[in-house]
Design a protein around this nucleic acid. Structure first.
Lengths: 343, 343
DNA sequence: CTGTTAGCGCGTTCAG
DNA sequence: CTGAACGCGCTAACAG
């Protein structure tokens, strides 16, 4: 690692003025030529374009932005950069913007309101055209308020203020769909092992499961077992369930991690999956799903779609077509070997 | 989701001019007052600051940047937003910048050179002060070249051009340290199951393992088993290893996922971990490590540190103290129950 | 068709 | 201690 002073060798940023000079025209003409405006002689345009390429001119978006009042930049304020939710959401947003020319300024507030304010200020200072706010759980989070100079869309965690725009996973429906899949396989004795009751996601999925059972005049086996989003809890809860003598032909796990624990516990007891007991998870989290034996049936919450929709609504809002309210994104059951042999 | 036209209700962006007007001073004075420059009467300053707060004035960084020639923004160009490497690196970079006032513009090129060029152009247009380029594997990647108007630092994947600045994990040393840990426990018959031989990370870790064994006049049991970075490969390779009649007292897995597969296969064969066979992985990837039975000993490659170092070197380069060459970040052995009972 | 002028929001001289 | 004037890179309106 040698230290070198190459600041001097680095080419100075080339401006439109340089291009104009090389092409032998005025700055204004160069501008028009490069932006495809009318009233420029083809020959002149060609000269300007050539000069621009030769100097590898990159227009200064900042200067443009200062005029236009639009920066083509959005702020993405997350609280869960570690988590596996922000990332797909971020990708979805990138997707949606990618086609256009939006760039994403990323900030992680780490669940700290002070940090969030700080970053918010920084983003507004950089004159972002809009904000996407990603929560760390599906529980509602405080609104940034309506006094913002730019529109905001809340993703994953809805805003507590429902005149804000939010895009969230449909956890209730996820519970319903998962349970209907199990019922469609002829399973009638379904137990539900899930994460902490303090999580809205856990409660809503459980409510969906209960609802789907009720629709066919069935009930879940025993109470919903709330615990933590871990494999260890999946194992422990399964053990206690079976030791309690419960007869089950399906276990609905509140997440893929819990499902992995359930599978392990069943395997230890020499119970066959899916013949004896069918198992399902939620999230379709690849590393968990792909390594499971058998491969895990799960519900994909379509985080990427959430990100994409949030981005689309944000763009709409920036263009003046603002929408309010919570949008729930459909989830998808992904059938694999843990519920249907060989699938 | 009701559509509303609230563009009108949204407060117009307030400029320094507004503040000056309210405070009854000129823009120049307002500027000095807010930026803590000398030669401003305390009373005047107070009036200006109050006005700024009342209007919730946010200085326009763009305008500032256009003058200063520095935007306080860096571009992070990744190829692996899905992957679990960019994320910690991104966080480390955020950490390092967070103290200061750098903001991060994020772009995912998805391994597509065209996309990368496109994003690069966009970032340069936004006049980023520097670039961090994150690869998707530890294999060297093509340099962006030296004709860039701003410095670049390559993280995770080094640049093929070693006059560039790169920060990468020390995979060779990781292999050494892991193996030394096993040796220190008295294990002498160590097998190595890892990912595809096409990956530099796999080859280097294997080389480190071989080297550490050689240091104490030992050899790995059998050839290195190259395969894929999956649990399934871990299971399959372990089965074939043991069916081949190999006597091993330790298995070094090339990743935590592979290690999980190894643990499963050993468990199926009623072999005790760590008493019969000690098992180790690489990456210290929490979801894999935390769910393992027993908890998995592994090598943490300190991705966050990589991100932090890349950010620090970038800042140094931006300030003119540019450094060239590849920096290898130390890794750390994290001891848990799969090598030391009860740890 | 092209060049000149003005101004976006701000920081920085330099007179007053 | 304060304010007018200038310039950053660029586009829009107008004049030639």
């Amino acid at each position: 690692m040698a230290t070198t002073e190459d600041a001097t060798t680095r080419p100075r940023t080339v401006t439109l003025r340089d291009v104009a000079q090389v092409a032998g025209v005025s700055v204004a003409t160069a501008s028009k030529a490069l932006n495809g405006r009318d009233n420029v002689h083809p020959d002149t345009r060609r000269r300007v374009v050539e000069a621009a390429e030769r100097l590898s001119f990159t227009p200064n978006s900042l200067a443009k932005a200062i005029l236009a009042g639009q920066t083509g930049t959005v702020g993405l304020l997350t609280n869960d950069l570690e988590g596996r939710f922000s990332l797909p959401i971020l990708m979805g947003a990138e997707d949606a913007f990618g086609a256009g020319q939006m760039s994403v300024l990323l900030c992680d507030a780490r669940e700290d309101a002070i940090r969030e304010q700080y970053h918010l200020k920084a983003l507004l200072g950089r004159r972002v055209d809009g904000l996407i706010v990603v929560g760390s759980s599906t529980d509602p989070r405080p609104s940034l308020g309506h006094a913002l100079p730019v529109p905001a869309v809340y993703a994953y965690a809805p805003s507590t203020d429902d005149t804000d725009a939010s895009v969230v996973p449909d956890n209730l429906n996820a519970g319903v769909l998962a349970t209907q899949h199990l019922i469609s396989l002829g399973r009638t004795r379904v137990a539900h092992i899930t994460g902490p009751e303090t999580y809205a996601a856990a409660r809503e999925r459980a409510a969906g499961a209960r609802e789907a059972m009720l629709d066919v005049n069935l009930e879940l086996v025993g109470p919903v077992r709330y615990g933590s989003w871990t494999e260890a809890w999946g194992r422990a809860a399964t053990d206690s369930l079976l030791e309690g003598g419960a007869e089950v032909d399906a276990i609905l796990a509140g997440s893929d991690q819990i499902a992995r624990g359930v599978l392990d516990a069943l395997r230890d007891r020499r119970l066959d999956v899916p013949d004896d007991v069918a198992v399902m998870g939620f999230d379709n989290w690849d590393p968990m799903v792909a390594g499971a034996r058998p491969l895990l049936t799960t519900v994909d919450m379509n985080f990427k779609t959430i990100g994409r929709r949030a981005a689309q609504r944000l763009v709409a809002a920036i263009e003046g077509r603002s929408t309010a309210g919570v949008e729930r994104v459909e989830c998808t059951v992904v059938v694999r070997g843990s519920t249907v042999r060989g699938a």
